[in-house]
């Protein structure tokens, strides 16, 4: 998987991870992948719901030492 852009949203609280993700995805092209790092536990539900509604594809999410990592393919 080729990652086009990585967004560091660690330490940010609601609603910042989603607001930053939205801004970051505007910078990449359709089909490219955005990687998001977040520490907010709510980010998992938030990003899952957001990608679904915004027409993007959450291809993978995992937790790594308290950091949630999301891989979103732009729709």
């Amino acid at each position: 998987m080729e990652i086009t852009k990585t967004l560091d949203a660690k330490g940010l609280a609601c609603p910042m991870p989603i607001v930053r993700t939205k801004k970051a995805i505007e910078d990449i092209n359709s089909g490219e992948v955005l990687e998001v790092h977040a520490t907010d536990v709510g980010a998992k539900s938030d990003l899952t719901a957001w990608t679904k509604s915004s027409g993007h594809d959450l291809i993978e999410s995992k937790e790594d030492n308290g950091v949630y990592k999301f891989y979103i393919r732009k729709g």
């Binding site: 609603p15 989603i18 607001v19 993700t21 957001w50 915004s54």
Partner: peptide, 11 residues
């Protein structure tokens, strides 16, 4: 304002 900003992120 949190809801408003979240909704804006939903376009």
């Amino acid at each position: 304002y949190i809801i408003a900003n979240g909704a804006a992120a939903y376009d």
